[in-house]
Design a protein around this nucleic acid. Structure first.
Lengths: 193, 193, 193, 193
DNA sequence: ATTTAATCGAGACGGTACGTCATGTCTTATG
DNA sequence: CATAAGACATGACGTACCGTCTCGATTAAAT
């Protein structure tokens, strides 16, 4: 009935829930995490979870955003190929870790929960995409790339294949993929002759 | 104990199950389909489902493979850009239909069920990928693309972004994406004069 | 830690609680009244209730005692049969009203809460029983009843059946029961000529 | 949706539930028995209980009826006073045992659950009342009681006080009460010489 | 043609988790 | 400093499905 009053929120419970959810999602995959297990591990009542998050997905999304963050940083050494290689490799490494179970599980959750899908897109993916486009745009200004290149499409062509393998598992993730993508996509975008 | 004897299988029940699963998956999304609902709609005992499929995912995968198929065909008019545009557009159209709910739901299922992931990759995605690579390889032989291009990576760079938007919803699916991808990826792969 | 200081008690809150509890108990039965509902209706914090009453039963008991009282009065016209008929009829009427839901609910509460049971017996039932016995004893002195009659047992034999029907609902409450009881019990207690 | 099919009922589960419910109700009182505890003790899923009984009260009523039964038997030695004394004493003894917790708890339950109230009245109390009235009627025919006595009212006047003390605890149950009641009620019903 | 054994529809079973409700205690800010 | 408001841990509620397990009642193959 009444919306919860954030000022009175117990910081202790809040943190315990995020930590419990993180631990459980990493070690058994987001799909197999239950609200009851989170509550039990956090030493918290289920209601305390339901009071602050509308669904398991929303909670896990918060946890994920908390936990990722750093990977969206984009280096800028002046060499766009090197910078993208570094960043794409970092993403690949993250997706090779146990953490991947968490991420893929949450994406699965998003397929049936529009709110999670929106949160994921806006708070995580778009946020990560910005710096990538910006780096590409700078490379254009620097003359590393042709001026007419659609920077957003280029970013998608480079990163989507990594997510594709993460989710669809047609081939293992690895640095070779990163190299191949840079060769195929980025190389074609350089100024001709 | 005894493995099921395919010869005695009831064709009526088999078809009813596939149809019920299809209908339910399309209209409420694969995640919200339950075995009980399929059994009830098909007028079949639950055991009859469990006798022939190990899991909901395996059943839905069968249904999906049944239902897709056609989209993996690849035209060959001699103009690789036109051919890819046609095929990528067909894929996009499929992903814009109600059918998408089914597909994304099954991919979600695959995140927690290794057997489904494998089936999806091998029986659907790899099968669809073959003709794409083949078409690109032919274009190489025809001199439409440079000889040193990694054809598999190119196929991934072109198609993965469509799946990316299907699953991650950072932007709506549409033909503009297809055009942008062809411009960014394929154009860069042409022979340098 | 500190015992509540009755002097500082808010009279406003006190009254609001009793009124809210009464209204709720009458209209949905004592069993379905919750402390939260009482607090909400009274515009009072839950703690304020818990501070002054140990349990829902204790609160309802207070409310009930407040509300009854009057029915324990016993007329004395000199005709013991007429007096008992009047009083038993009044009790029956009370038990036929909406108020019965409250009373039966509290008796139910007492079955699992010794303190309520004790309070009910001592503060309500015994208090009501006193005048009844006294009236019967006077009738003895007046020669309306035999001298050897056990007045307490007689009071029980007359009133318990009314409670029996109230609680066990083997037959509807009504004035016929009162008449039948007076015929069967009281009539047998007159002096034998 | 579909009503359960009694023919397929598991006798094992049925018995285990009744036994578990009995044990729990006797040792902690009907009010403190939970469906979850019954299910756990019986080694049964909760749904199996809900499939066959609409409420905790309905289940406990079944258990109680199972367990009582015998006490409704009425001896007939030709001496109505002796017979009633024996039977009333048996009832009193039952109500003095641990079993009372069960009985009073169920009566409490009935105050908030009309179905239980009806079941209790019809399947237990009325059934027990029949033989009592019959015995009194026979005594009338034998000339032990006056012909004009309302036998139903007499039965109520004798037994209701026992229930009254059981439920309202104004005084302890005991054989003295039985004697007093027989003196006060039955004695008055004898033929006047 | 009869037997016989597996499949079928149905659905009860022991479970797990759900999301909700009320309990009684604890915390914070308000008057 | 008692209050109202309400967050908290706890625990039971009744429901939905899970995957397994009987039940007769069809089948369809091997006698």
């Amino acid at each position: 009935m009444t919306p919860p009053n954030a000022a009175r929120r117990s910081e202790r419970a809040h943190r315990a829930i995020l930590e419990a959810a993180y631990a459980l999602a990493v070690d058994r995959g987001a799909a197999k995490v239950t609200i009851e297990a989170i509550a039990a591990r956090a030493g918290v009542g289920k209601q305390t979870i339901y009071r602050w998050w509308p669904s398991k997905g929303a909670l896990l999304l918060d946890v994920l955003i908390d936990a990722v963050g750093a990977v969206s940083e984009m280096p800028d050494t002046g060499d766009v190929t090197a910078d993208l290689k570094a960043q794409m490799t970092a993403v690949t490494r993250l997706f090779q870790s146990d953490f991947a179970r968490f991420y893929t599980g949450l994406i699965a959750e998003a397929q049936g929960d529009e709110a999670v899908a929106r949160g994921l897109a806006e708070q995580l993916l778009d946020r990560a995409d910005g710096p990538r486009r910006a780096r590409l745009a700078k490379a254009q200004r620097d003359g590393e790339l042709r001026a007419d290149v659609d920077v957003a499409a280029a970013a998608e062509a480079l990163y989507a294949p990594i997510y594709y393998r993460l989710l669809l598992r047609t081939a293992p993730l690895g640095v070779d993929q990163v190299h191949a993508l840079l060769d195929v996509v980025l190389d074609g975008l350089r100024p001709r002759e």
